[in-house]
């Protein structure tokens, strides 16, 4: 279909005067948005963000915290229309990011608890081995109303419209067997040479078939905290070389817990009589992710650990973090729909 267009960001010389930024929802995101609008030194930025962050809040479920961090990661992806592209490497914004990343990573490590990295590949298989469909996919497959299903698509859009991009940051940081396998997996995610088969494009097509917007910006202001958390976890792991093991463990767990849920979600789309593009997106993932599961665990994580066995703990941490944050998201979305019912 040629009528689906994901609008490119304006070129720098066509920048509009007022930056288009997400709506802050608390002191942290307000501090970050202010830093995006007005120049500051690294010391000022660090002090302001530190003052805005209350250590008693759980970073993983606090929307203000996650939105602030999301804005900082966005500078490394598409950026914001009307803001200076050089902000990506501004010491002030990097200092702000570091202030938030420290409690974020600590909260993830607390969430997953102690792990056993003695046999990391076996541990990833064990963690992801249950074929029991998770409650969120079961609900979407069997019970969700059309409004709830549309809301699910809109909530997940902040990730799926950027599908697989965070993992691309890892490619130059791994070698040999892991690099070849990761490139192969990403090539498939990116449509295997066919732009119309890019997974992010398939998702945009599903959204467009329901008259929903196809740009990430339209979804950020209404995204649940934990939806932003799922995206931020991938950015944290993808953008830090020291966390490349966690990035790939996360990828393995993500792929290994996708096929069966996607089958159920596709059935839900058929049950509700949604346009074919919606089920098509999920059906593609039933087949693709059954391949990716094997490639990610055996070749990507296996290849990485062959050359860097010291990353065993990180691989298991990444996998466990993926599954634990997925659980937080399922709880949040089911509660959101319960509240609205």
């Amino acid at each position: 279909m040629s009528d689906i267009v994901i609008r490119p960001r304006p070129a720098p010389d066509h920048q509009i005067a007022v930056p288009s930024l997400p709506r802050p929802c608390g002191p942290v995101s307000q501090a970050v948005v202010t830093l995006l609008r007005e120049p500051a030194t690294a010391t000022q930025a660090e002090r302001r963000v530190r003052a805005a962050f209350h250590p008693h809040l759980d970073p993983l479920t606090d929307r203000d915290f996650q939105l602030g961090l999301w804005c900082l990661y966005e500078l490394h992806l598409d950026g914001f229309p009307g803001t200076d592209p050089a902000l990506e490497w501004s010491p002030a914004l990097l200092a702000a990011r570091a202030v938030l990343e420290e409690p974020f990573e600590a909260a993830l490590r607390r969430l997953v608890g102690p792990l056993s990295p003695d046999d990391p590949i076996e541990e990833v298989r064990r963690l992801t081995g249950s074929g029991r469909p998770p409650r969120l996919a079961r609900f979407l497959g069997r019970d969700a109303t059309a409004d709830q299903f549309r809301d699910y698509l809109a909530q997940r859009a902040v990730y799926h419209l950027r599908e697989s991009d965070p993992q691309s940051f890892v490619l130059p940081r791994v070698h040999g067997r892991a690099k070849a396998a990761l490139a192969e997996l990403q090539y498939d995610e990116y449509g295997a040479g066919r732009p119309d088969r890019l997974h992010a494009t398939l998702y945009a097509r599903a959204l467009a078939s329901l008259d929903l917007p196809t740009g990430v910006a339209a979804y950020v202001d209404t995204a649940e905290a934990t939806i932003l958390t799922t995206v931020n976890v991938m950015a944290l792991f993808g953008l830090h070389r020291r966390l490349r093991g966690a990035a790939l463990g996360h990828l393995a767990a993500f792929e290994a817990t996708s096929s069966i849920p996607c089958r159920l979600i596709a059935l839900g789309a058929h049950r509700l009589g949604f346009p074919a593009a919606v089920a098509t997106y999920y059906e593609e993932h039933v087949e693709a992710d059954a391949v990716h599961e094997q490639v990610a665990i055996h070749d990507i994580c296996g290849g990485l650990l062959e050359s860097s066995p010291e990353l065993a703990g990180d691989v298991v941490f990444g996998a466990a973090a993926c599954l634990a944050v997925d659980e937080l998201t399922a709880t949040a979305l089911l509660a959101r729909w319960e509240r609205a019912a």
């Binding site: 074929g131 469909p133 096929s259 039933v286 087949e287 059954a290 599961e293």
Partner: peptide, 9 residues
Amino acid sequence: WCDGTHKAL
């Protein structure tokens, strides 16, 4: 093609 059913079993 595999569809993950082996895990459900």
